[in-house]
Each structure stands twice: as C-alpha cells, then as structure tokens.
Design a binder for these strands. Structure first.
Lengths: 256, 256
DNA sequence: CGTTGTGTTGATATTAATCAACAAGTGTGG
DNA sequence: CCACACTTGTTGATTAATATCAACACAACG
C-alpha cells in the first residue's frame, strides 16, 4: 500500500506556516483554528524546524499514508482536504475522519500507520521524520503540549463519531455531519453561515457515516423535502433550518 | 448528572501506585501494562503527587463523571472496571470504552466532560484537580509524555472501534470484542490464554458494540454453536478457536 | 456526441431491532 | 427451607431500517 508518488519540494528556508493557526480556540469539528501561525512554535526558530520538515504537495486521489506501512514520518496538513480511512479485507471502507489545514497525522506510538490517508483535492503537507519527533519535542516543549491538546480533541471527536455510528439513525447521522460542517463554517467565519461546501463526494460521506451511498442520497432527498436544507449542487448544501438540523443531529427527533 | 456520592479516603502519605504500571509496552486493547508502577513518575517524588491526588473508592453502579458537568478533575483508574458512555436525549446509550487500571480519564481540553463514567465493580481512582495539571506537567515532564502516548493509543483504539461500528456485522463485532479481550489476556498474562472473564454484562456489551442485547445474545449462541467459543457462565468465555475468531474479527468471514 | 463518473430513484432482500415470552439465577423475607 | 420478586440472559415471531441490485439522469470531458 501507499505508493506515495508525492513530489517533494525543496525545503523553503522559512516555512511560514507549519500549521495554519492556533491563535484561537480549536474548532470542535476539525481542530483547526481561525488565526494564523501555530502559536505552539511561533516563538521558535522556524529555521530549525525547516531543517527537518519537508513541504510536500500531494495530488488528488493519492494515498500518501498506507495502513500497515512503517510509520516513518508524521505530517501536518497545511492546505487541502485529506480523508483518513481503514479497510477490511473484502474492501469495506470506513473513513475515520477528514483532515484539513492544521491537523497532525501519524503521531501514534505504533511502528506502523494504523490508517490510510488519501488526498481529496490538492493537498500540501509538512512532513517530519518521526525519529526526530522526540528531539523536536525536547527543543520545542510547546509542540508536545500542542500535540497532547490536539490528540485530546481528536479523541473527543472520535467518541462523538462512535456515538453516531453506534446509536444514531441515518437521518441523524447526516444531520450531524451537515450541522458539524455548518457550525464549523459559523465558528471559523470561513463563509456565509448557512452555506456549506462539501469537499467530499457521496461515497466518502457514506463511508464516513457508516452508510451506503444510496442511503445517503435518499436521506439528502428527504432533508430537502422537509425543507431543512437545499442542495443547489451536489457539493453545496444550504442549511435552511439550523435549529431543526441541530436538534435532529443531537437525537431529539421524535419520529425518525 | 454525576451525583458522585463517592467516598473520599484520607490521602495516604505515599500512594504507592498512581497507575498500575507502565514498565512494558501498552496493551493494545486497554492501554494498561503488565509491570508495576508508572515509569513516567516512578523516579519522582511521589509525596508531591500525593499532595494533589486524592485516592477515592467508588461503588459499583455509581456514575462519578457526568457528561456535561464541569471538568474539575482528571482521574487515573488504579483498580476495578469503569464504563465510559454517552447518552442521547431519548436514552439511547453508546459505551465508548471500558477503562481499567492505568487509564487516565478526563484529560480533554474542554471545560466540561464529554462523556460519563460509571463504576462496573468496586473501583479505585486517583483524582487530581485539573487546574493543577499544567503545573504537574511542568514539574513532571515525563507525565506529559505519558499522557500524549496514552492519548495517541486511545485514538488508535477509537478509530478501530469506528471501523467496527461503521462497517462490521454483528458477528464480526462480537468476535472483535472477544478476540481483543482474549489477546489482551494473552499479552498481559493475566490468566490462561483462552479463558476470558467479562466484567460487563450483555447490556453493556450491546451498548459498546452498537447492537441490542438480543442480538448480542443470539450472536453468542451462534458462536457457541460453531464451536468458536464456550460459555460456561455468562461472565466467562472460553475461546476454542483463536484463529477463527481472529479472522472473523478482522473481517475475513466469507459468509456472515 | 458518445463515454465516464457521480448521483438519484425504485424494487427487493436482509440484517438487526422490536415485541414478547420464558428460563435461570440471586437475594429477601416469611 | 421455600415462595417470591427481581435481575439478567435466552429464544421466538415479526417489523423496520438499511443494504443490495438495478435502472436511469445528468454533467464533465474527450
């Protein structure tokens, strides 16, 4: 697995952004923050980080981390969208999460990656050799603090997803998914509150929500019919009733 | 929520065990380790930790962490079994994990707990005020390293559970559950390899695997009929065919 | 202008949930 | 020691939600 076929780019003398920003509270959904430049390392000599970091661009559809491969590097996504997934031998796929700018990948202690990572669109990452992680953290204690913080946040998000997959209906799952993106947009001021652009297709959404593509499609249709959302095109969702979507997402629906 | 009604015990001058042991590699299932005394803090002045830690005993069935409650403390389980769960407003419950000796609880950055924790049997925990966590980590840098390591491990386990809940059949889920306990027992030498004692009842297993109690019961019956396991009593499972159970757990089953 | 990829909708099958009854323990009190 | 209630687990009958199989619509693209 993981024929990276990424193209490495000459290390720029000063990678301006290692992760896109941690100046504010983390976004509940993706862990990313609105401000610029990671404050965990902003007061550090970035040239020293540049010595170990390689900025790499990955083209859409490329798997750059393969489950089971030796975990040689860890990554920080600096732009684009990544899907993280696990496969069963017969091809069943579960997307465990989507990563955007700011997310660290491949930090776990294991000697092999426990998941695969594939670029959805054009992705840029900062790549660090894992064997230098320990000394990096010694040099930059704030980095370790930041990693612990993000790992904790991801754990909370993972448990929320466990609740979703274990106990929510298809309708509640899609509502949760859309509401998360919508509140994300709200919190991060990325765009108008109620209009959400989806970087992933229906198949990815299905594999993220533990459903089939048909059920996702039908559920979209139903939410449209109920006037909770509008879908001007497959990649754009306009949330018409945030309140209703939120209460559905939280499992308040009387009828399913 | 969380009417703790725990009884606090006078702090012993030297809490011999803060967590039960990290001398070896962590158990893939529960993060606990076989040896004794946490090596993250074993070379530290334990009296200084005793100054902030309160050893507390919790009786079976008591909820000592309530989802949504102010996250004032973090905990380290020192003995007994704990179930961690989230609830939906209509009562649907998802158990996100079971915690045993060695597991840290309540570390996430949020100001409120994102889950509830209930003692299954007689549980003993070390309780620390969260506001002292930062200074604790300053004093004991090894603690922070340990927390990052355990958080990473838990994240890997959570993603494995996401795969289970999103894509595995009832049969595969129960096989995964049993195989994890069985390999846990094997790795930790807690007991004879193939005999597993379950601390939790069928209801807890169902809520952990995203199934109903009836489906869990039927699936047990089926695995028995197939001679993969024997169940001398509800709390004891003897794994008769570890190989078959493992390949079923990993999703290799041709028929479901 | 066909081809391909993506998404939608319909018909049917299947898994697991629900509803219901019962069995096996466990503890209580008479 | 034995009824009794109560909890926990098992099994059966049926239902419901979602998956599967299949057809088609539509847009992007050569």
């Amino acid at each position: 697995m993981a024929t990276p076929s990424v193209r490495s780019i000459t290390v720029r003398p000063r990678p301006l952004v290692i992760s896109p920003g941690y100046g504010s509270d983390p976004c509940a959904t993706c862990g990313s923050r609105a401000e610029s430049v990671c404050n965990a390392i902003e007061d550090l000599d970035l040239n020293r980080l540049a010595a170990v970091a390689v900025v790499t661009e990955i083209e859409p559809g490329k798997t750059f981390i393969g489950e089971g491969d030796p975990a040689t590097d860890f990554y920080n996504v600096t732009s684009g969208h990544v899907k993280l997934f696990k496969l069963l031998p017969d091809g069943r796929r579960q997307i465990t999460g989507f990563a955007q700018a700011g997310v660290f990948l491949g930090l776990a202690g294991s000697s092999t990656y426990s998941f695969s990572a594939e670029a959805i669109d054009e992705v840029r990452v900062c790549r660090f050799p894992r064997r230098k992680l320990q000394s990096l953290m010694v040099d930059f204690p704030a980095l370790e603090k930041r990693l612990l913080e993000t790992a904790s946040n991801e754990l909370v998000a993972a448990q929320e997803q466990i609740l979703l997959l274990g106990r929510k209906t298809a309708r509640e799952r899609l509502a949760s998914f859309l509401y998360a993106r919508c509140s994300h947009a709200l919190a991060c001021n990325h765009k108008a509150a109620q209009s959400v652009t989806l970087a992933m297709n229906r198949n990815d959404i299905a594999d993220y929500l533990g459903l089939t593509i048909e059920t996702v499609s039908r559920t979209f249709t139903r939410l449209k019919a109920e006037n909770l959302i509008a879908v001007p095109n497959a990649a754009t969702v306009v949330v018409l009733d945030v309140e209703a979507l939120a209460s559905l997402a939280d499992g308040f629906s009387s009828e399913n």
